[in-house]
């Protein structure tokens, strides 16, 4: 039973990584940049929810909605002010800017809210469900997390496959010049991608802090790096890859903690990534972009 219980914890943690990884992968797919500030957007989203629910005692639903709104705006703003002026710049300049934005967000959070850890109130509730005569106990948070991740995946698959905007995003990710010749507003499309990725970051932040309720300015940093790893692991640019990479990473991390060593679990996660990339440099589901004829 403990195996099953670890598996479910792993899938649940992996679901959070997957939701964050979607943001990395969608932005990479379209803007061809690594948005290293993505993890810190999660932290801002969690603070937004914390203040609304824990400080002002409003409903958790309102907390989540406002957190999504704050992060969506923040994502659009970051893109507009920091990345858009660098559209034609070398990718190293963009990468360094992204790291700068990451520190800016962390340090602003420290100034505004200090670095004292806050105890986050779960938006889900603390209960757990018992199975197999009480031998298997699964927290409601874990179940809700997994369900929300599944819903997000289905929604995104529908969005990119069936809607005009979603198809335009795929067109931009293949060839921005050709997309412009179709009449697609590439700047707007990139902006929408940041909006969606950041909205997902807010959801991930709230779920993360509901499961692990310590909130600090650095809260988003490590999950951000791991989700980035998950995105690369699954194949950066691929939406199913983000799901697969995130889930596997969560499972490896929890199993590593449970059966090998708590201290080494992160090292194990990154070791697996390195091995996968040595065998398949494009990640599990990644494909090399076909050369043009």
């Amino acid at each position: 039973m403990s195996f099953l219980s670890h598996l479910i914890s792993g899938v649940s943690l992996g679901s959070i990584y997957a939701i964050i990884a979607l943001g990395y992968t969608m932005v990479y797919g379209i803007a061809k940049m690594l948005n290293f500030a993505h993890g810190d957007v999660i932290m801002v989203g969690a603070y937004a929810c914390f203040f609304i629910v824990s400080r002002y005692g409003m409903s958790p639903l309102l907390g989540v909605l406002l957190s999504v709104a704050v992060c969506t705006l923040l994502g659009i703003l970051i893109e507009r002010l920091a990345y858009k002026p660098l559209r034609a710049a070398p990718s190293l300049a963009v990468l360094i800017t992204a790291i700068g934005i990451s520190y800016l967000l962390q340090n602003s959070a420290q100034l505004l809210w200090t670095s004292n850890p806050k105890v986050f109130t779960s938006v889900v509730g603390a209960g757990s469900l018992k199975f197999a005569g009480g031998r298997l106990s699964i927290s409601v948070t874990a179940i809700v997390t997994i369900v929300i991740c599944a819903v997000i995946m289905l929604a995104l698959t529908w969005f990119t496959g069936k809607t005009k905007m979603g198809k335009a995003m795929r067109a931009c990710s293949e060839d921005k010049g050709a997309a412009q010749l179709m009449g697609i507003n590439v700047n707007f499309t990139i902006s929408m991608t940041f909006a969606i990725g950041s909205a997902l970051a807010a959801i991930a932040g709230v779920l993360l802090c509901s499961a692990y309720p310590t909130l600090m300015p650095t809260t988003g940093s490590m999950p951000g790096i791991k989700a980035f790893t998950a995105a690369v692991f699954g194949g950066i640019g691929s939406i199913p890859g983000a799901l697969l990479g995130g889930t596997l990473l969560g499972i490896i991390e929890i199993f590593g903690k449970a059966y090998i060593s708590t201290q080494l679990s992160d090292a194990i996660v990154f070791a697996v990534l390195i091995i996968v990339l040595l065998v398949k440099p494009t990640g599990l589901l990644g494909t090399r972009i076909q050369e043009k004829v």
Partner: peptide, 13 residues
């Protein structure tokens, strides 16, 4: 409208 050199259709669509 323009049909660009090298066609540039969206190969994955």
């Amino acid at each position: 409208a323009q049909v660009p050199e090298g066609r540039r259709v969206f190969l994955r669509m």
